[in-house]
Structures are given as structure tokens and as C-alpha cells.
Amino acid sequence: MADRPMTRRRLDGPLTWFEQMQRGWDQFWFRSRSVYTLALMRVITGLMLCYNQIIWGTQLEAFLGANAWISSATSRAMAEQGFTWSFLWYVDSPGLLWAIQFLILAVFILFTVGWRTRPISVLAWLLTISMCHRLQGALFGFDQVLAVLTMYLMIAPCGAAYSLDAYLAARRKNDSVPSPRGKATISCNVATRLLQCHLCVIYLFGGLAKVRGESWWDGSAMWNVLANFEYQSLDMTLLGRVPWLLAVLALVTVFWETFYCALIWPRWSRPLVLGLALLIHGGIGIALGMATFGIAMITLNLCFLEPSTVDSWFQSGTRWVQKWTNRP
């Protein structure tokens, strides 16, 4: 009986630690956040979804038809041991495929403009992963990022700003300016945190995979990327005459990618980390012909921008447009 207070005292440390951890967790996940950043991400993601779907449409039957590069039966066989499913496995008639193509495109357009965004975003995500499950064998990082973006944007009310929904809601209230103010919700924060954590995982494992390759240490990886004929869209091979520069670029890439998950959180290092993301993904987009992947990754990085920053950009842009349109 006498040693009870002693036991309690011994437990004080771990209990305090546990309470602090719980408080930290709740503060991280369950505080309110404005929607502006996610709304901007929705618009860009929607545009990417539309563009991607239009490009699939240029060779729809070659990828989804009865004699597709990878037929429905083959796609099903490839997924046999997995837990995937796509309604497109059961469609190969040209007429029906085109009807579905226009339906999917309509959903993506509605997602972009933000009309009935809550149900439409769920539909957009389901269609995105259904396309991915059917079209395996022709996919790359761009598709993975689109699936990530649509999945998390679906969680938040991302149509509450910069959308037709917001415009119509403001009109119903007879507001003169359809201003999407005051929409701070916990679900916005949960979606943002999930995007941030997922992005950290992508970079961490991207960096660790590079660490395993000796060519990223001696810089030859950077040369092999620049001198890659099939990827190349801008000839940067002249950089091969400055090997030390390639070695520096390779090391910067490895360290930036590996430590992104740590350096993105402090406010002092965030601009630097995001600036490097812009440079590296912009470079990949311009020089390696993967503009779509570059834009998708940059869009994913937007999740670290404060909503107030995004909205101040939007307000400045609106004022600028109003100024120009009101000019005599």
C-alpha cells in the first residue's frame, strides 16, 4: 500500500509522454484548415485528368478495344492474383467504349469546375483507379500521382472554393462577390495531412532506392538520364563536359529526395525544399519529356502551401483580371 504513490510517480513520465503524444497527434490531424490549397489542387488535378482522358481518346480502341495492345482478358490475367477490379474489363465494343469515354470526360470536367463536387469527386476517384486497373502495362508515375490526388481530394470538401458550387452558393445568398471565405474544416486538414504524409513516403523511398545505386553517388546516373534517347526532349548532353556539375546534381537529388520527409516540416527549410521540387520536377518535365509527371508532382507539392497564401494569390489574380477587364 505504501509504495502506491511511488508507482504512480514512476508512471508519471510515460503517462505524460503518452498524453503529449496524443495531444500532438490531435493537433496534427484534427484541427481546422481552410480549403483554398485543396481547391487549387482540385482545379489542376481536374485539368490533368481531362488532358489524360483526351489523350487516351486519341487511341481509345488500341488501348481498350477488343484488339487492344493488352486485351481485357490479358489485363484480367495480369491481375489474377491481386485484388483489383475494373468495369472496363467487361467492355470492348467501340460504341460503348466511346460512350464511357465521354461520360468519364464529363465527370472530370465537372470535377475541375467543381459542380456537385462531393459526389463527383468520389466518382472521379473510382473512374481513375478503374482506368488504372484496366490499363496496367501502359502506366507510369503520372497515373500513380493522379490516383493519389483524386483519392485524398475526395475526403475534403475541395469544391467549397474556386468552384461552381461556391459561385452558386454565393449567388443563392445574393452576395455580390462569390467569395469562398471561412471554410475551415477538419476534413480539409485530414486530407492535407494525408497528402503530405504520402508525398513524404514517395520521396523517402525514391531517395532510398537511389541510395542503393552506385551511379547516383559518382554522378553517372545523371549522365545516363540526360543521354537517354527515348526520354530526352531537350538535349542537355553538353552538361556531360562538366562532370563535377553532374555529380553535384546527382547528390543534390539523392539528398533532397531522401531528406524531404524531414526538411519539409520546419518553416525555415520549407521554401528551399519546395524550390528544389519545382526545379527538379520542372527539369524532368522539360528535359525528359515528362511534363505531365512533372506537373503532377509539383501539384502534389502544393499541399505544403498555406491556404492563406494560395487565397492571397487568388485574390491578387482576381483583382488583376478585374483591373484589366475594366480598362476602357
Binding site: F83, T84, I129, H133, Q144, A147, I202, A209, R212, W216
Partner: peptide, 16 residues
């Protein structure tokens, strides 16, 4: 599998 999360994210790695 169902959520299309089954990726390694090893872009241009280990040795391009």
C-alpha cells in the same frame, strides 16, 4: 491493390 497503392516509387533507381 484495390486502392492502387501498390507502388515502389523507385523512379530512375537504383541505377538509371
Amino acid at each position: 491493390d484495390a486502392l492502387f497503392l501498390n507502388h515502389g516509387y523507385a523512379f530512375f533507381a537504383p541505377n538509371p
